[in-house]
Computed example of a mutant assay.
Amino acid sequence: MTRFSGKSVIVTGCSNGIGRATAVLFSRYGAQVTITGRDSERLEVTKEKMLKAGALPQNINLVVANLTDPNGQDHIIQSTLKALGKIDVLVNNAGANIVDGTSNTDQSIDLYHKTFQINFQSVVEMIKKTKEYLIKTKGEIVNVSSIAAGPQALPMAPYYAASKAALDQYTRCVAIDLIQYGVRVNSVSPGAVSTGFLTAMGLPEQAQQKAESFIASHKECVPAGVLGKPEDIAELIVFLSDRKRSSYIIGQSIVADGGSTLVAGMHAHDLHDMLGL
């Protein structure tokens, strides 16, 4: 399929989960893709999946880099320009809920800085550094946020939630600034998605499976009764990257959460059960 034939795409955070699924989907649609992350072995797995999806080897640019390092950002961008010639789409997917043993209002200030550096500052820097190239191609930017941004609270991880809320507002501001140059900016806000996110926080695989099972089986968590898949979010990212299909969507954060943000705990329970009828 050639939906993105001739388009050059950067996807950050491709070692697993949503980033990997997005890179594979872009490849299936004929795009040239820069995949990047810190884990070279996992990036090779992503590359193999892209090749199986139909990507040509010359259409995959693999870059091992630390996105929180300005030199790493420059390497990603310059490598893309050298290998693929231009930048049509920037997908700021990389992010993390970093843990250090603290939680709630006891979270450390060091954790605050690290969380905002990857979830917010790196996005700001990548947009600033790719702006001139995206203006040339009348390109697209898609940021990956989270329903943790609110308005409901996430008291156990306030820095993660606040960084995503900041990203949502930044998306809106940048969207209005850049649309005058023909560049569209939007974001996606996933809910509970099975991505390995919890194991990246240090939890064992068994604990993640237990948590995912609990969330999926409680309708006050996910009314749909099932966790999302990385591919669900990838489809939305690709949709927002497609000018032909989403041209009039500007500065929006599209929620994909199985209904989670539509319910309060009380409303999720059957009235007859609550009344004992």
Rank of each mutant, 00 (worst) to 15 (best):
residue 204 P to L: 05
residue 114 K to A: 14
residue 149 A to F: 10
residue 178 L to F: 03
residue 46 T to I: 10
residue 53 A to K: 04
residue 246 S to F: 04
residue 251 G to A: 09
residue 156 M to W: 08
residue 66 N to M: 00
residue 20 R to H: 06
residue 146 S to L: 09
residue 11 V to Q: 01
residue 28 R to A: 11
residue 190 P to Q: 12
residue 25 L to Y: 13
residue 186 N to A: 11
residue 151 P to A: 09
residue 270 D to P: 00
residue 97 N to M: 12
residue 256 A to L: 14
residue 103 S to Q: 10
residue 53 A to E: 10
residue 277 L to K: 14
residue 206 Q to H: 10
residue 213 S to L: 08
residue 73 Q to F: 00
residue 24 V to C: 03
residue 132 E to V: 13
residue 181 Y to H: 15
residue 188 V to F: 05
residue 61 N to K: 02
residue 27 S to D: 04
residue 23 A to N: 07
residue 35 I to Q: 04
residue 243 R to C: 00
residue 42 R to Q: 15
residue 272 H to P: 00
residue 45 V to N: 07
residue 73 Q to A: 02
residue 204 P to C: 12
residue 9 V to P: 01
residue 10 I to P: 06
residue 149 A to P: 03
residue 50 M to Y: 08
residue 48 E to T: 08
residue 72 G to P: 10
residue 151 P to I: 13
residue 111 L to G: 06
residue 277 L to R: 14
residue 246 S to Y: 03
residue 264 A to I: 15
residue 116 F to T: 07
residue 121 Q to N: 13
residue 147 I to L: 02
residue 21 A to V: 07
residue 94 A to V: 13
residue 148 A to R: 11
residue 66 N to P: 00
residue 116 F to P: 03
residue 251 G to L: 08
residue 241 S to H: 02
residue 97 N to K: 04
residue 159 Y to A: 07
residue 185 V to R: 01
residue 116 F to G: 08
residue 41 E to A: 15
residue 216 A to W: 13
residue 143 N to E: 04
residue 222 V to M: 02
residue 204 P to W: 12
residue 248 Y to G: 00
residue 75 H to K: 15
residue 46 T to G: 03
residue 2 T to E: 15
residue 136 K to D: 10
residue 78 Q to G: 00
residue 50 M to A: 05
residue 107 Q to Y: 12
residue 268 A to K: 06
residue 135 I to H: 10
residue 25 L to G: 01
residue 33 V to T: 10
residue 190 P to M: 08
residue 131 K to F: 12
residue 136 K to L: 14
residue 215 I to Y: 14
residue 7 K to W: 03
residue 48 E to M: 12
residue 264 A to D: 02
residue 84 L to E: 09
residue 72 G to R: 07
residue 252 Q to W: 02
residue 110 D to Y: 11
residue 131 K to W: 10
residue 17 G to D: 07
residue 45 V to Y: 02
residue 277 L to Q: 09
residue 219 K to G: 02
residue 260 S to D: 01
